[in-house]
């Protein structure tokens, strides 16, 4: 399955405004605790780290454990400082890496 993401960042904001960001990424977050039909252990395969950078600075990050639900969802906030790019990066097991970005206009 291709990695899909849904990202919500307000297109515009006032300087100093606290804006909400929501991100959703497709990933099974396989816990490593499940077994297949033949009784074999299904190996753990999860996203380990999420980072949000705003104009190059990390403004929010998360470390995931297997207890984060499949297709991880996050809602967090950041202060609108300057017009620019907000980037999102997910990194995980088996070489998983995905990057997304959104533009914000600050007045």
């Amino acid at each position: 399955m291709r990695t899909r993401t849904l990202v919500k960042v307000p297109a515009t904001a006032r300087r100093g405004e606290v804006v909400e960001i929501k991100v959703l990424v497709s990933h099974p977050m396989e816990t490593g605790f499940r077994r297949d039909r033949t009784g074999g252990a299904i190996p753990v395969d999860i996203i380990r780290r999420f980072e949000c950078r705003y104009d190059g600075d990390t403004v929010f990050a998360a470390d995931f454990h297997p207890a984060v639900a499949a297709n991880p969802f996050l809602a967090f906030t950041t202060v609108a400082t300057t017009s620019g790019t907000i980037t999102f990066e997910w990194v995980g097991d088996n070489g998983f890496a995905h990057r997304e970005s959104a533009e914000i206009q600050v007045e």
């Binding site: 399955m1 899909r4 990202v7 929501k22 991100v23 959703l24 497709s26 499949a70 969802f73 809602a75």
Partner: peptide, 16 residues
């Protein structure tokens, strides 16, 4: 909420 609804990931894939 279309950003919180994981089903939208499949819709997005279908759109592609």
């Amino acid at each position: 909420d279309d950003v919180a609804n994981p089903g939208m990931l499949w819709v997005l894939d279908g759109e592609a």
